[in-house]
Simulated assay, not measured.
Amino acid sequence: MSIVKVAELAGVSHTTVSRVINSEGSVRSETADRIRAIMEDIGYVPKPPSRRRGPRRLNDTSFKTGNIAFLTSSESLKVLTRSPIMANVLQGIEEALASHGMSMVHGAVGSKRPLPPIVAKGGVDGVIVWPHLDAVSPEAMEVLRRYKVVYVMSGISERLTADRVRVNHGKVGRLAVSYLASKGCKTLAYVTPSSLISRVNLCDRWAAFSSLAEEQGLSARQCEIEQSQLDLLEIDRDRDLLIQKTLKAFLAQGQRPTGMFVTCDALTAKLYPILKSLGIQIGRDLEILSCNNETSLLAGLEPRPISIDIQPEEIGRKAVAQLRWRIQHPEEESQVTIEVPPKFLE
């Protein structure tokens, strides 16, 4: 089996297949998904970079070490183990780097936690950051300014401007309204943890949601839960009581919604028992649509909600492609935002 056969079955050139294998980021996500599905169906496994014919990509003089750092703004790397969505982003990053014969270094950095020594000493070629660098010390920021940086799943950072790769939040909002409207819902609720409306880019999701709802003659209200997305992954009775109090107050105001879009699966998992305790039958009294498609968080919910897939693996792959491009084109100064379209999974 060869790359030529994959190209023939996919109806594309072998160059396009090569770009998908090497995560070069210039192929439409729908086409890339089709090519990967065909490769899996026919059992085609690309050769590792070291065994491919032609020059190895790592021989590019732009890359000195073959290492990329993934930094999370936290005092501990435990934050990554608590977030299924970020595990998927990391998978995409690792796969893309491996296809280029490169390695990834994980690290946490915060106000009290310094940069990993390998980063501080210039032992990496570039840095991917999640979600921001707000709490990083001035000393660490000076070091990071020497590198090319790409943010994933984050909003605008004023401390260090750089390229960003994220889901298209406007499309997420419109997809949510379209789905709930198709279910006959006339009164919509948009329920989100406060951490997901505090960043500029995430406001696009609500703006698109409320705008399309208005266009279709539907009413839409927003309910903000005073929690961070990561707090929702913990078992905390006081926080759960706060969620219950906020939701009850929201439902008591105005007309009760018949359709609810919850902006992350972690919050959906918290809302299910609360809604049932209020006598609301999900699927009959209230249609729920979730987001992120984190299956481990939705397991056990009955009825299991539909969840929008924001394609975290593709976000990871495109982050690597953009960082490699940025390292190879250091003269380019303007920053770009790459948006990955969400998918609707039923």
Rank of each mutant, 00 (worst) to 15 (best):
residue 230 L to Q: 07
residue 230 L to S: 10
residue 230 L to I: 05
residue 231 D to E: 06
residue 231 D to P: 03
residue 231 D to G: 05
residue 231 D to Q: 07
residue 232 L to K: 03
residue 233 L to F: 13
residue 233 L to Q: 13
residue 233 L to G: 12
residue 234 E to V: 12
residue 234 E to S: 15
residue 234 E to N: 11
residue 235 I to D: 05
residue 238 D to K: 09
residue 238 D to I: 09
residue 238 D to R: 11
residue 238 D to S: 08
residue 240 D to Q: 01
residue 240 D to G: 02
residue 240 D to F: 00
residue 241 L to V: 07
residue 241 L to R: 03
residue 241 L to K: 09
residue 242 L to N: 13
residue 242 L to H: 14
residue 242 L to T: 10
residue 242 L to S: 14
residue 243 I to A: 01
residue 244 Q to E: 09
residue 244 Q to Y: 03
residue 247 L to T: 03
residue 247 L to N: 04
residue 248 K to E: 13
residue 249 A to L: 10
residue 249 A to R: 10
residue 250 F to N: 08
residue 250 F to M: 08
residue 250 F to E: 04
residue 251 L to N: 08
residue 252 A to W: 02
residue 252 A to M: 03
residue 253 Q to W: 00
residue 254 G to E: 10
residue 254 G to A: 11
residue 255 Q to R: 01
residue 255 Q to V: 05
residue 255 Q to Y: 00
residue 256 R to W: 07
residue 256 R to E: 07
residue 257 P to A: 07
residue 258 T to N: 10
residue 258 T to M: 11
residue 259 G to F: 00
residue 259 G to V: 00
residue 260 M to K: 09
residue 260 M to R: 04
residue 260 M to D: 00
residue 260 M to Y: 01
residue 261 F to K: 06
residue 262 V to F: 08
residue 262 V to P: 01
residue 264 C to E: 12
residue 264 C to R: 12
residue 264 C to W: 13
residue 265 D to T: 05
residue 266 A to S: 10
residue 266 A to Q: 02
residue 266 A to K: 02
residue 266 A to V: 04
residue 266 A to I: 09
residue 267 L to G: 03
residue 267 L to Y: 06
residue 267 L to K: 03
residue 267 L to Q: 05
residue 268 T to Y: 09
residue 268 T to C: 07
residue 268 T to Q: 04
residue 269 A to M: 08
residue 270 K to M: 07
residue 270 K to V: 01
residue 270 K to A: 08
residue 270 K to T: 00
residue 271 L to M: 13
residue 272 Y to A: 06
residue 272 Y to S: 11
residue 273 P to R: 09
residue 273 P to G: 06
residue 273 P to Q: 03
residue 274 I to C: 02
residue 274 I to S: 12
residue 276 K to T: 14
residue 276 K to M: 14
residue 278 L to P: 01
residue 278 L to H: 09
residue 279 G to F: 10
residue 279 G to L: 13
residue 280 I to L: 07
residue 281 Q to N: 13
residue 281 Q to E: 15
residue 282 I to S: 14
residue 282 I to G: 03
residue 282 I to E: 00
residue 282 I to K: 08
residue 282 I to L: 10
residue 283 G to P: 00
residue 283 G to V: 07
residue 287 E to W: 06
residue 287 E to D: 13
residue 288 I to C: 02
residue 289 L to R: 02
residue 290 S to D: 13
residue 290 S to T: 01
residue 291 C to G: 10
residue 292 N to Q: 15
residue 292 N to D: 15
residue 293 N to C: 11
residue 293 N to A: 14
residue 295 T to I: 15
residue 295 T to A: 15
residue 296 S to K: 06
residue 296 S to T: 09
residue 297 L to P: 04
residue 298 L to P: 07
residue 298 L to M: 15
residue 299 A to C: 15
residue 300 G to I: 01
